[in-house]
């Protein structure tokens, strides 16, 4: 298990989380992943990274600063992407059920990011 995998496993312990991954934001490619069976990691990585890049350009155009967190709400699931400075050009991506405790996911993601930066 890589260093990333151990940290991703902590996010995955939150009830309702179906998996988490570290993704290259520019390429949309998977760097590390810990996913439940059936979660298409490559597709999640490519699609979430694309949404994140779009959000980043939008925020820049609005002069709101760099996008640090993006959440996409679907009827049957949620996608999270966090881009803290500690991760450089990488995103922490989380796939979850729609009923997940969003606050808990964000808290655990923040802890993981802190650990990755340390």
């Amino acid at each position: 298990m890589s260093g990333y995998a151990e940290l991703l496993d902590r996010v995955n312990r939150v009830t309702g989380v179906r998996g988490s991954m570290v993704v290259a934001v520019e390429d949309g490619l998977v760097v590390a992943e810990e996913l439940m069976l059936g979660v298409p990691g490559d597709a999640v990585a490519a699609l979430v990274a694309s949404i994140f890049r779009r959000a980043r350009r939008s925020m820049s155009a609005a002069d709101f600063g760099d996008a640090a967190f993006v959440q996409v709400d679907g009827e049957d699931g949620l996608l999270f992407a966090a881009a803290p400075p500690q991760l450089g050009d990488l995103l922490l991506v989380v796939v979850a059920e729609s009923w997940v405790n969003v606050g808990l996911v964000r808290l655990e993601a923040a802890r993981v990011v802190e650990a990755l930066g340390g």
Binding site: S50, F64, G65, A67, V70, D73, G74, E75, G77, L79
Partner: peptide, 28 residues
Amino acid sequence: GASSEAERAVRHLKMGAWKGILVETPRA
């Protein structure tokens, strides 16, 4: 473009219709 991107993502990942996107920056 965010609308079509979100629609594309949830469609491809079979997550139903998209209900919203939340973006945080240090200022907004």
